[in-house]
Amino acid sequence: MSRLRAACSCIALLSSLGAGELLAGDIQANVRDKAGKGVANAVVVALPATPTPGTTGGPSATMIVDQINKEFIPYVLPVLVGSSVNFPNRDNIRHHVYSFSPAKTFELPLYTGTPATPVLFDKPGVVILGCNIHDWMIGYIYVSESPYFAKTGADGKAVLTDLPQGEYVVRAWHPRLEGREEATERKLTVARSGATETVWEIGLLPDLRIRRAPIPGQSGYH
């Protein structure tokens, strides 16, 4: 009987250790401008200080960047390297989507509906989207080499979830970031459970996007 109890205790101990190994922590990020206001559409990414196999890259689900009312929706889309993105045109006119960015150069000539083949983003970096027909249409795809990333909401906050415990290099990026993304780097320690908080105060460059012009004699915009 004592041997049975000992065996059960051993099994329970191993089970608890196994469950503990599944525990993971979060990073609660807050990105603000110089005036202390939350910055939306910032991407926060955490890279393991000592990368291990399986923690970077790899296939991911197909994502979507819509074209609605002659705008890219969302304005900023973070994806994992190896992801594919579809660019459906939901307007009743044709668009011509392209990018000349080193991380991904591609072109989708004038079309409506959804292209038959999504675009594969197989290199990390920032991809700037444009439309040859509508100059004000600008969008961004942030291709992350790490699976641990998140985009800030209107309040400037984002949560990176389920990070294994350990040391991470964390940085923030925004389309109008003043300076280099690498300048935002910091080291954080993520515990086996719970949240680690971090705050950035970043400078923002002026928004130089071309403004949409009103349609003569109408209430809408081009």
Results as ranks from 00 to 15, higher is better:
residue 207 D to Q: 08
residue 203 G to P: 00
residue 204 L to S: 04
residue 7 A to T: 15
residue 116 A to R: 12
residue 138 I to Y: 01
residue 27 I to R: 01
residue 71 E to D: 13
residue 5 R to H: 12
residue 56 T to F: 08
residue 6 A to N: 15
residue 172 A to S: 06
residue 180 R to V: 00
residue 60 S to Y: 07
residue 37 K to C: 08
residue 144 S to F: 04
residue 14 L to Y: 06
residue 33 D to G: 04
residue 86 N to P: 00
residue 144 S to E: 08
residue 166 G to R: 05
residue 128 I to Q: 10
residue 90 R to T: 15
residue 221 Y to P: 10
residue 72 F to Y: 11
residue 1 M to D: 15
residue 99 S to Y: 00
residue 197 E to S: 12
residue 202 I to K: 04
residue 50 T to C: 06
residue 80 L to F: 01
residue 2 S to N: 14
residue 88 P to K: 10
residue 95 H to L: 08
residue 152 T to N: 06
residue 146 S to P: 01
residue 75 Y to W: 15
residue 185 E to H: 07
residue 199 V to I: 14
residue 208 L to T: 08
residue 16 S to N: 11
residue 106 F to D: 05
residue 143 V to F: 00
residue 105 T to G: 06
residue 32 R to Y: 05
residue 126 V to C: 05
residue 52 T to D: 07
residue 75 Y to Q: 14
residue 142 Y to L: 03
residue 222 H to P: 00
residue 220 G to D: 13
residue 195 A to T: 15
residue 214 P to C: 03
residue 49 A to M: 07
residue 117 T to V: 15
residue 15 S to F: 10
residue 91 D to V: 10
residue 200 W to F: 01
residue 112 T to S: 14
residue 66 D to R: 12
residue 200 W to D: 04
residue 96 H to F: 07
residue 53 P to C: 06
residue 175 P to D: 06
residue 221 Y to T: 14
residue 185 E to C: 06
residue 72 F to H: 00
residue 186 R to G: 05
residue 152 T to G: 03
residue 151 K to D: 05
residue 31 V to M: 09
residue 66 D to C: 09
residue 176 R to P: 04
residue 14 L to S: 09
residue 47 L to N: 02
residue 65 V to P: 00
residue 11 I to E: 13
residue 185 E to M: 09
residue 50 T to E: 13
residue 140 Y to T: 05
residue 189 T to L: 10
residue 101 S to F: 03
residue 150 A to K: 01
residue 164 P to H: 00
residue 188 L to F: 09
residue 29 A to R: 05
residue 133 I to F: 12
residue 133 I to Q: 14
residue 104 K to T: 01
residue 221 Y to C: 13
residue 151 K to M: 11
residue 192 R to F: 10
residue 138 I to V: 15
residue 199 V to C: 05
residue 59 P to C: 08
residue 67 Q to T: 10
residue 127 V to E: 01
residue 15 S to R: 09
residue 167 E to N: 11
residue 64 I to L: 10
residue 222 H to V: 14
residue 37 K to M: 09
residue 76 V to C: 02
residue 165 Q to C: 11
residue 139 G to D: 00
residue 41 N to R: 12
residue 34 K to G: 04
residue 126 V to A: 07
residue 88 P to A: 12
residue 48 P to E: 04
residue 33 D to K: 06
residue 103 A to E: 00
residue 163 L to T: 02
residue 48 P to S: 07
residue 76 V to M: 06
residue 60 S to R: 01
residue 53 P to W: 01
residue 93 I to F: 15
residue 217 G to M: 02
residue 114 T to F: 11
residue 176 R to K: 09
residue 82 G to F: 08
residue 104 K to D: 06
residue 166 G to I: 03
residue 81 V to R: 00
residue 92 N to C: 11
residue 42 A to V: 06
residue 73 I to S: 11
residue 208 L to Q: 04
residue 187 K to N: 10
residue 13 L to W: 09
residue 127 V to C: 07
residue 167 E to T: 10
residue 155 D to C: 13
residue 16 S to V: 13
residue 206 P to G: 03
residue 65 V to Q: 03
residue 153 G to S: 15
residue 77 L to W: 01
residue 109 P to M: 01
residue 178 E to T: 02
residue 2 S to M: 15
residue 63 M to C: 10
residue 103 A to G: 04
